[in-house]
Design a protein around this nucleic acid. Structure first.
Lengths: 219, 219
DNA sequence: TAGATTGTTAATCGATTAACAATC
DNA sequence: TAGATTGTTAATCGATTAACAATC
């Protein structure tokens, strides 16, 4: 039996590596492997083996065996539990445009503890439609629904002009965490957790990496 | 005249804050402001003022004036030039599904130096279509096109099962930077820069923030 | 002038990496 | 046994923050 470590404070960096490990381990398990070493994980994922061991030790009480490594199943259980403990939240999505629909259709969230229970839009033509089993409601009904279901997580996929006002509405309805896909900064009370899904920032980082590679080459 | 600092090595953290500043400054300029202080930027963006000044000093030779702050226009020019210098790349996108179409329709990339010149898919029904002015070609023609146009950046929006094979194909055709939206790890030569757009990881970070907020509350 | 703000140097903080004994 | 691998402690590295003189 795998003990789940509760109340452990993992760094943001570790937290964002955990889903990567999880995905990798699930693939390995599927491929029929039973054990995996931190050396192997690090090699494939281009990380430092010590870092991998530290990350794993933080969320899992399953200890590895010298020479053999870790039991994949145990690690998966541990990471799932750890993320699950932090996670499993109902969420609402606002803005049923191209991106909103893409997210509503995305099945992967359930594996990571997010459950989108309702979508909202101002466009009357969309209201009442079901996308991937999730009903689109009128934007006006957002506060009531969020309050009634005690929902804490909101996803914003509206055009950037509308994002601040939607965020304010969500905050006023009791939402405490906002996943913002609109390319704009939000001004909100420090009580609200905000995660920006910023494609421009990602792109900048990739470009930087590319320039580094190309520069290294010249030398 | 604003000098552009070339060959400056900004940290990954700084790089990913630059687009955020840029967006904020553009909004301020639009609102009619002429000057802005690092204190104000930091306050609104919830950053440390010293950090803001350091970031700005790194990419801009425009110096701020005590009491007044910085000229917004100069800062915008500097950041645009800096990101532009690193950036301006033609790119191809592979996988014209829900997410692929969303990205093809997204106008924001041009502001940050990315220019998607062609899309590819294996589905014959999609081939020949134009999305937002970008033609969808047969997946088979990817290598030839990438080589001929000397394209260095590839965007992967195929299902995860196909991602590795697409990545291999891109790498073999000369692509040096891959923006991977498929929820899977890619094994590639260290020569290739890869940026994972990992929704699961983002979600984990947001959940962690939320848990922190909720925990703080109890105390 | 008084006070807000800059730019820089030094201190702190946190995360990554190196070193190495323990062990299967 | 020999060697790969673990887990932990110490060292390093890098980024953030604090302190403060300079200045508009």
């Amino acid at each position: 039996m795998i003990e789940v470590k509760e109340g452990v404070t993992a760094s943001k960096a570790t937290i964002s590596r955990l889903p990567v490990y999880l995905r990798f381990l699930r693939d390995k398990l599927k491929a029929g492997d039973e054990n995996v070493s931190s050396t192997l994980i690090a090699g494939q994922l281009r990380l430092n083996p010590v870092q991998v061991r530290k990350d794993l030790a933080l969320v899992s009480s399953a200890s590895g065996k010298p020479k053999l490594g870790f039991k994949i199943k145990e690690l998966i259980e541990s990471i799932e539990s750890f993320l699950g403990v932090c996670n499993t939240h109902d969420a609402v999505l606002c803005g049923v445009g191209s991106l909103g629909v893409t997210l509503l259709k995305y099945e992967g969230f359930k594996n990571y503890g997010l459950n989108i229970v309702a979508a909202f839009d101002t466009n009357p033509e969309l209201v009442g439609k079901k996308i991937n089993g999730i009903t689109v409601f009128s934007y006006n009904s957002l506060p009531a629904k969020v309050k009634r279901l005690n929902i804490k997580v909101g996803i914003i996929t509206v055009p950037k002009e509308a994002a601040q006002s939607v965020a304010d509405g969500m905050a006023a309805s009791g939402i405490r965490a906002i996943w913002n896909f609109a390319p704009t900064h939000l001004s909100l009370s420090p009580d609200i957790a905000v995660k920006y899904e910023d494609l421009a920032a990602s792109l900048a980082v990739l470009s930087k990496k590319l320039e580094d590679k190309l520069r290294d080459e010249e030398t």
